[in-house]
Amino acid sequence: MFEARLVNSSTFRKVLDAIKDLLNEASFDCSENGIQLQAMDSSHVSLVSLNLKSDGFDKFRCDRNLTMGMNLTSLGKVFKCSGADDTVTMKAQDYADTVTFMFESKKQDKISDYEMKLMNLDQEHLGIPDTEFSCIIKMPSIEFARIIRDLSQFGESIVISCTKEGVKFSAQGDIGTGNVKLAQTHNFDKEEESVTIDLQEPVALTFACQYLNSFTKATPLSNQVKLSMCENVPLVVEYQIPELGHLRFYLAPKIEE
């Protein structure tokens, strides 16, 4: 028996919104530790990794490890039926081929349930090695989304270069060039507005705008985003989901020919 209850169903809805551009379907691996998802986009260029801890749920029970393959368009339809303040309870029997989502309104005056068919997905799992990153940038997630959106107008790629002075985002194309520099700023009163850089050595890497833009769909999940970079290693774009876990995206740098 699997049962997970989340008072803020909107958090799960935000997770779905964040990954549905990249993934059509995905397997949710449920265990006593929580719910994990790891999947590559259809072009096998980027990797999505979601971890929702069991103790972040308001109720969590998983008697037997369970992999639930879901069509994310269908799952999106189910969550469209929920209210913004609803509580969601997900339930599945052992070896079931369906999962049930029950939505309860705050006042408990409306309860709806939707049963969705599960899929058998043959998904590859990748082993992600521990990496000593050259630099780790933490910045407001809205600012990151804005910069990626703005610079995407100039070219198909963005260079992210990081030194002890700050981080620079650059793009160039037919119409010209764009550069955005951010200095480290520490706002002790408003931690979420800070830009912090943990630098081992300067690094400059090039990434495809298309994927960076997709990653920023996770902006509503978190005030801050963490970018981890190292030469010849995929970029990690991480959004912490308060009290529940994290959503990470991995993207390989473009290599100069």
Binding site: M40, V45, L251, E257
Partner: peptide
């Protein structure tokens, strides 16, 4: 534009 490297080139298939 340089080709985008597949992520499987970096992480091991388990």
């Amino acid at each position: 534009e340089n080709p985008q490297q597949p992520i499987v080139n970096y992480f091991k298939n388990l």
